[in-house]
Design a protein around this nucleic acid. Structure first.
Length: 300
DNA sequence: GACCCGTGGTC
DNA sequence: TGACCAAGGGT
């Protein structure tokens, strides 16, 4: 039995029942879930995904609303640039593809916010095509089971795609199942810090398990600080703007962080990124990108 | 390749 | 409690 067969058999018995895995899930719904899942845990994505899909069932529904609404609906999922890119993605899908999420990988990869992982995930899970789908979970599972190393590098490389390709069954539908099975295995069994090898279908064949080595202490990736960074300040500024029902005066934003230089840099960064706009009429007040009446009827 | 980009949960 | 981590993408 191949690794893929073994993984699929395990998946059939142990997969989580996630809403975007239902057979009738639209390609748009899959795309939204994949973007939300970029660096955000499943437990926080699930309610946000339901609310998002309820409000914007199709790309066209989202495309007619301003980016500010997407940023608000994003809530506290983190990395709000993803919300903006998802909005831009909806616009691009309407403009380039008549409102239908493309099934061609190159067209998917050309969409805002869709990279190597997400493009392949949509082509595979929404359209049933045969592509290697390599995320951090797959990389870790393959790295351990096949190469016998405790952890993979931080980024997906061509070599990772080639390695996974070699493990895929020929039949596209089976290959898709294998990819989701490898991902699920990495997410709930072959986890980064304390893998549950006794529950793993690869236990008897895993090269790393056979080596008898332990997972080295210390970070498997470069540690990422948050406290005191521009990211934290951006988060504080955006929280105020998200919750605002009227344009926010600069003085209000000045209260979120004491360091003038860093606060100004963070605000400029948000404007640069297109998340926030100064009001045309009044450069001393700010709104989320695209915020306009009727949300702010006083501006009329 | 290195670095930037949020947020909250776990141990 | 601070370090580590979570289905990446863009520059």
């Amino acid at each position: 039995m191949t690794l893929a067969d073994s993984a699929i058999r395990w998946y059939e018995e142990n997969a989580r029942d996630l809403p975007w895995r239902q057979p009738d899930t639209s390609a748009w719904a899959v795309l939204v879930s994949e973007v939300m899942l970029q660096q955000t845990p499943v437990v926080r994505v699930e309610p946000a995904w339901r609310a998002w899909m309820n409000r914007w069932p199709t790309p066209a529904d989202l495309a007619v609303d301003p980016p500010s609404e997407a940023i608000r609906m994003w809530g506290r999922l983190g990395y709000p640039r993803r919300a903006m890119r998802l909005h831009a993605c909806a616009v691009a899908i309407v403009e380039r593809h008549g409102g239908r999420v493309p099934d061609d990988l190159d067209q998917l990869l050309a969409l805002p916010g869709v990279g190597t992982y997400t493009g392949r995930a949509v082509a595979t899970f929404a359209y049933g095509q045969r592509h290697p789908v390599v995320d951090t979970n797959v990389r870790r599972v393959v790295c351990r089971a096949v190469e016998g190393k405790p952890d993979a590098g931080p980024n997906t490389t061509t070599a990772d795609l080639v390695a996974m390709e070699a493990l895929l069954p020929e039949e596209p539908a089976v290959a898709a199942k294998a990819s989701i099975a490898f991902m699920e295995l990495g997410a709930i069994v072959c986890v980064a810090r304390a893998p549950r090898c006794v529950d793993c279908p690869f236990e008897q064949v895993c090269a790393f398990r056979q080596s008898g080595e332990a997972i080295p202490a210390g970070p498997s990736r470069k540690p990422q600080r948050y406290a005191g960074t521009d990211r934290q300040v951006r988060g504080l500024l955006l929280e105020v703007l998200r919750n605002a029902t009227a344009p926010v005066p600069r003085q209000r934003l000045d209260t979120v962080w004491v360091d003038d230089v860093q606060r100004a840099r963070a605000l400029a960064g948000l404007v640069e990124d297109g998340l926030v706009e100064p009001l045309d009429s009044d450069a001393d007040r700010f709104v989320l990108a695209g915020d306009h009446p009727p949300r702010f009827p006083t501006l009329l």
